[in-house]
Design a protein around this nucleic acid. Structure first.
Length: 331
DNA sequence: AAAAAGAGCAACCGCGGCATC
DNA sequence: AGATGCCGCGGTTGCTCTTTT
């Protein structure tokens, strides 16, 4: 038995919207909002449309500040980077591109960017500026731990889940799981966190601060203890990190040993995400401090490993706890 | 010039998650 | 605790316009 339809399809208009319908919808929403209920909106607005259709029309076309037309190179880079990192989560990608809708980006990807990527990957052996996961057709050993092949050593890293149905891919010389890098699932917790979650520039990031990511002490701890995890009163959970992110932290530690003096900040991360920071360059150590240190010091620094313990013991309020997930790094 | 193929994109569909009853 | 309803998401469809044959 299927799901009940949201409306009577025989009584609603379908297909393209007319200018008159657009005007009715726009006028109504500008006056009254959607009232928290799209289903009942069409009736109130005098439209013979399904509520879902109204919502879609508003979100994708009528709402203010929607950007139509060509995507810029910068937008392309952001989409590539995010797609490489998180896959086809269009709404998240859209959140990084003001004025663009998930539908727009999805269509753009399907019609243009995917082809662009194919041509990039087949035209030469040189890596594109983006870290897109190309498949490694030679890799049969799907149970092999994920190990870097280049200049960096991941600190005590082992995969959380090895799924033999997956295959390995190659990301700029590093092998990784093909399901969009590292969506490791911790069966004990409902959320896996990424650095993107951690560095969101609002008060809901996991440290409950604005823009903070990891400071020296955290990195020191990571470096000295081969992980950021420690059990407190028998409690333990993890932040699920992507391999790239592990690399970024490892690289950051390496930079610190060379005298680099910046925190691992939101700016650093965003710089990478937006394509200015070349991950490969970071990893190889050929980058300069200026291209990895984009500044941005948080209003609060995580003081040391004790801060991690505090979180484990529920001493601090943070969105981590709101998400029922305690912040330990997987080791 | 006409037909076929391809490209672009708005809109639809169904599912999962969540809130409320 | 289970049922119900709504929202939002991502995959897919199908219409229209453009390009190619």
């Amino acid at each position: 038995m299927g799901r009940a339809p949201c409306c009577d399809k025989t009584k609603v208009k379908r297909g393209p919207w007319s200018p008159e319908e657009d005007a009715k919808l726009r006028d109504y929403i500008e006056k009254y909002g959607n009232g928290g209920n799209w289903i009942s909106l069409p009736l109130k607005a005098g439209l013979r449309r399904c509520g879902k259709s109204c919502r879609l029309r508003w979100l994708n076309y009528l709402r203010p500040n929607i950007k139509h037309g060509d995507f810029s190179e910068e937008e392309d880079r952001i989409i590539f980077s995010l797609f490489a990192a998180i896959g086809s989560r269009w709404s998240i990608i859209a959140a990084h591109l003001p004025g663009r809708t998930d539908n727009d980006i999805k269509n753009y990807w399907n019609t243009k960017l995917r082809k662009k990527l194919m041509s990039l990957s087949s035209s030469s052996h040189s890596s594109p500026a983006i870290a897109y996961p190309f498949r490694n057709p030679n890799s049969q050993d799907v149970k092999r731990p994920l190990t870097p092949s280049a200049t960096i050593t991941l600190s005590s890293y082992t995969p959380y889940v090895e799924n033999p149905t997956r295959s390995l891919i190659n990301i700029n010389g590093f092998e990784a799981d093909d399901q969009q890098i590292f969506p490791f699932i911790n069966p004990n917790y409902p959320h896996d966190f990424s650095l993107a979650d951690m560095c969101s520039n609002n008060n809901n990031n996991i440290f409950g601060t604005s823009g903070f990511l990891l400071n020296h002490n955290i990195c020191d701890h990571f470096s000295n203890h081969n992980s950021l995890s420690s059990e407190v009163n028998g409690k333990r959970s993890e932040i699920m990190m992507k391999q790239e992110e592990m690399m970024m932290i490892d690289h950051h530690i390496g930079q610190m040993t060379k005298g680099y003096n910046g925190d691992f900040t939101q700016g650093y991360y965003n710089n990478y995400i937006s394509g200015h920071g070349d991950l490969k360059q970071m990893i190889s150590g050929s980058g300069t401090n200026s291209n990895i240190n984009m500044g941005g010091s948080g209003s609060r620094s995580a003081s040391s490993s004790s801060f991690i313990s505090d979180l484990a013991e529920n001493k601090t309020s943070s969105s981590f706890l709101q998400h029922k997930c305690l912040p330990y790094f997987y080791s």
